[in-house]
């Protein structure tokens, strides 16, 4: 049963990633795109954890933790750039 559930959840997260990509491409503003990227990295963590579960190995945990940390830092860095790195300031 667990295999089927994991497959269903895989599909759910795949659909959410597609929705995020749609928002990333459509925009319309830059903060919208940052928000889409921010959601995408969280969803990819979910995907990695699920992949680890379907293979039955905990090896992917470190990769997920690294993505969580780098994703947060990059979101904050891009926002900070938007706030303070403007030409018109």
């Amino acid at each position: 049963m667990l295999e089927t559930v994991i497959l269903i959840v895989f599909a759910m997260i795949g659909v959410s990633l597609l929705l995020n990509i749609w928002r990333l491409l459509v925009g319309p503003s830059i903060p919208d795109r940052i928000l889409a990227l921010d959601t995408m990295y969280i969803n990819s963590i979910a995907l990695i954890i699920l992949y680890g579960m379907s293979l039955g190995t905990a090896l992917y945990f470190e990769a997920a933790l690294l993505i969580a940390m780098l994703g947060f830092v990059s979101t904050v860095a891009v926002c900070k750039y938007l706030l303070r790195g403007d030409i018109i300031e």
Binding site: V9, M12, I13, S16, L17, N20, T39, N43, A46
Partner: peptide, 13 residues
């Protein structure tokens, strides 16, 4: 978990 993640992305769109 999957439902909540999907709801979040639906809200985004």
């Amino acid at each position: 978990g999957g439902c909540f993640i999907l709801v979040g992305s639906i809200g985004l769109v």
